[in-house]
């Protein structure tokens, strides 16, 4: 095919998550695991050794019953756009930022498992394969052929379902278009969210719903002051959510944190 598939302007894929809509149901986490062939937990795995590319955190306003309030904050790789902390530290270039999409990619085949990137990531969005992946007998039939399962000893993380991007591009190319139209490429978590709390799109495209929402009021990003320009925005109309999620480390009391 000789079709010109170069796009004029690089995309900057990102998402806006409406915290007020998130019910903490975990559908995003399950859809993500199914899409990306993330194995079930080993019997001895914990919330600190398990792998879930998107993890829904429960945050609290710090008050006690009945003034207590809770919100759910899904945290996946925030796809940092500036001085991406994990990219520069990787000794063998297993992490890269795709210029065309702004997506921070992880090549498990290149990774030697030094975990330096995990130490570098302020969002704890990177996960290490402490075990070889094991699916119950027969269940390997249900694996997604678009994503290779990872072996023990390598790091993995959310890549905005790169497999879906490739598939969408192929479909677009088959239809004679250079790039997928908005909505043709959405990560599994976005598609699965029962309350449609996640808006995904090209932030560089001013007219995209995601860009519009990101610009709108009530949004914030996690650890914005680190200056890494994450491409995942959060939205909430509840002031305490802003306070807790954005609060500087310094002004926080220990009691406010669960666990």
């Amino acid at each position: 095919m000789t079709m010109d598939t170069k796009r004029k302007r690089p995309a900057r894929y990102g998402m806006v998550i409406d915290v007020d809509r998130c019910t903490g149901c975990g559908a995003c986490m399950i859809a993500c695991a199914v899409e990306n062939n993330v194995p079930p937990a080993q019997p001895e795995a914990t919330d600190r050794t398990g792998i879930t590319w998107v993890r829904v955190y429960q945050i609290h306003n710090g008050a006690s019953f009945p003034e207590n309030r809770t919100a759910f904050v899904p945290v996946m790789c925030q796809q940092c756009g500036h001085q991406t902390p994990c990219v520069s530290v990787c000794p063998q270039q297993a992490v890269d930022v795709d210029r065309e999409t702004g997506i921070v990619g992880q090549m498990p085949q290149r990774c030697l498992g030094c975990r330096y990137c995990m130490a570098a990531c302020p969002y704890h969005a990177r996960y290490f394969n402490w075990w070889d992946p094991v699916w119950p007998k027969g269940m390997e039939r249900t694996l997604n052929p678009a994503v290779a399962p990872r072996m023990r000893g390598v790091v993995e993380k959310c890549n905005f379902c790169q497999g879906r991007l490739h598939a969408a591009r192929e479909r677009a190319a088959a239809a004679g278009r250079a790039e997928p139209k908005p909505g043709e490429y959405v990560p599994a978590c976005v598609e699965a969210c029962p309350t449609a709390a996640i808006t995904f799109g090209d932030l560089a495209d001013e007219n995209s719903a995601a860009a519009e929402q990101a610009r709108g009021g009530n949004t914030f990003r996690l650890l914005q002051k680190l200056g890494t320009e994450p491409k995942v925005y959060y939205r909430s109309s509840r002031p305490w959510v802003h306070q807790v999620a954005q609060q500087d480390f310094g002004r926080r009391k220990k009691e406010e944190i669960r666990g």
């Binding site: 399950i30 199914v34 914990t46 699916w135």
Partner: peptide, 12 residues
């Protein structure tokens, strides 16, 4: 088994 994501692996 992947429901472990919302139980064991996150405590959600």
């Amino acid at each position: 088994p992947v429901m472990s994501k919302v139980y064991q692996e996150s405590g959600l």
